[in-house]
Amino acid sequence: MSDFPPAPDVAGTALDGIKVFTISAGENAALCRSIGVEPAADGSAHPIYYYIATQVAMGKTVAGLCETCEFDVDDGPMMGSSGVRFTAPLRVGESYKVTGEILSLVRKQSRKLGVMDVLTYRLRLHPATGGPALLETDNVWVLPRKELAA
């Protein structure tokens, strides 16, 4: 492992967004039907919006997040894991904003993937009008470093 340069030092990079994400009734319904269910009748949005809203409204695009890690998005980032803690359900018609940060970028050697960087970042979804987060999500991506392959 000492033969490889260290992963870029990106821990602490802010991912606060400036976009406001609104869960529209139409999109929520289309999303639900695309995965074989009807939208909830109580006005709650599909919980998978935890991932969608935070990804779309974070302060970087997927490509931009990869670029921060000095990784070309075309080299194929892979999802490793995704965790979420809700304090309240997401609602159709409500608007949200995102705060967050990169927690770590760790270079590892994998028997299967060769050299890779493991990116962990945390995002929180807040009401657009302000207030505490309704959810916090930690995502882990694997960034294969083909250029460092033996």
């Binding site: 269910v37 919980p47 490793g80 979420v84």
Partner: peptide
């Protein structure tokens, strides 16, 4: 994330009216 959504559908169907508080998925 679509694959996570399928699991969420299973959980919400199993517990009608329930609310997911936490979920951890490995791909």
């Amino acid at each position: 994330p679509i694959n996570v959504a399928y699991v969420i559908n299973m959980l919400l169907a199993a517990f009608p009216g329930g609310r997911i508080e936490a979920m951890d998925s490995r791909f």
